[in-house]
């Protein structure tokens, strides 16, 4: 693969722009995760069910979202 092919494939040839997009996506994922875990909890999902849906352990999702700050 040439550098030009790579640029076309990833949509940007400026690392500053591409890495900024990664940061923004991470932020977005955190915000969507928090909102939807709160929704699932309100609807009675267990931490285990939420962990399974996210592909992580019950412990890790509870440690991160368990108690209000």
């Amino acid at each position: 693969m040439t550098d030009d092919d790579l640029s076309t494939l990833i949509g940007s040839d400026d690392p500053a722009v591409g890495l900024r997009a990664v940061g923004a996506l991470h932020r977005l994922a955190e915000q969507v995760e928090a909102a939807h875990i709160a929704l699932a909890r309100r609807e009675g999902w267990s931490w285990e069910q939420i962990g399974d849906a996210l592909g992580v352990s019950r412990q890790s999702v509870h440690a991160k979202h368990g108690k209000a700050r």
Partner: peptide
Amino acid sequence: RALTAVGVDTAGFTQKGPAAKR
């Protein structure tokens, strides 16, 4: 603009609350 450059359109997204990072 960075998201658009990598082909992601987040125009429909609005933050609903803080990310739960304790």
